[in-house]
Amino acid sequence: MPAAVTFRSVSRHFGAVKAVDSVDLEIAEGEFFAMLGPSGSGKTTCLRLIAGFEQPDGGEISILGTSANGVPPWKRHVNTVFQDYALFPHMAILDNVAYGLMVRGVDKATRHKAAEEALDLVKLGGYGARRTGQLSGGQRQRVALARALVNKPSVLLLDEPLGALDLKLREAMQEELKGLQKRLGITFVLVTHDQGEALSMADRVAVFNEGRIVQSGAPEDIYNRPKTRFVADFVGSSNILSPSLSGSLSGDRRWKSLRPEAFTLEPGNGRLSLTGTLEASSFMGAVRRVSLKVADTSIHAHLPAGAALPADGEALTLHFAPEALNPLEDAA
């Protein structure tokens, strides 16, 4: 079975800016794939390359085993959910959803029936007669989803689809999108700058920085075994230990990352420890966030909310398992 999307050293330059710089990528069919990165990292350009809004300056893009270079967007079996939804303001909801079928010449009764079904799928049955202006942000998002899904695409592209929604709605939509993807079995490609979103929804995550993929893998791998300082810092929060500090702890002089939740107050068998001055601690609900000054480095730790701490400015020792120290590939 061919991969849903393949990039072979694909580049896209805008003047001197290498938006996408020789990217290799393979997205399996039926996979929920997330492209994660800060703004300007090239993830959105990659999405636009798959959709066909951009053409590569170098390399080859294949969709379902067929080269997509030079193929216009309207001839690709790929649909997009846009960040601003891009619903047609002059059309009723039903006609928005039926648009893809309309331009393919599907007759009115058939396409309206399909559009109704797609609206049911996103729990907006009966909204077909309304105008886009009468819907809330969350509802427009669902219409945009229905409008893409009605075409039964091989690949569905989602460009920061939840960015404009409030927190509660976003969490509900995350679960719903994931459920929908499992049910329909369509390949989803999600572009997001929100690491929580990428980790919770995707089967596989590619982390982008400066036009390149710096690491890709299962969410657990990305989170637990970041390869570089950039990934360790961008995906979740992480303590970055300099070669000298990590050398003094384990004798291994390399850059290391250490997750804040790895720390405990209790010493244990074979556990390593860090001693410093307690700078500040703040109550975060489920945890207490502690900042500890060790030499010239600030170390952040998440401790149980009820942990007994000394006063600020006093000495404090924190313990962690040696395997929590994750070596990074950055040059020492």
Binding site: F53, W74, D84, A86, Y99, V103, R104
Partner: peptide
């Protein structure tokens, strides 16, 4: 007019002429 309207139309399978007739002209 949001530029993504035209892209959305292309994305949904409409060529340049169809996009002009169904999306640009009405707007």
């Amino acid at each position: 007019m949001s530029p993504s309207l035209v892209e959305a139309s292309y994305d949904l399978g409409a060529n340049g002429f169809q996009t002009f007739r169904h999306v640009i002209l009405p707007n």
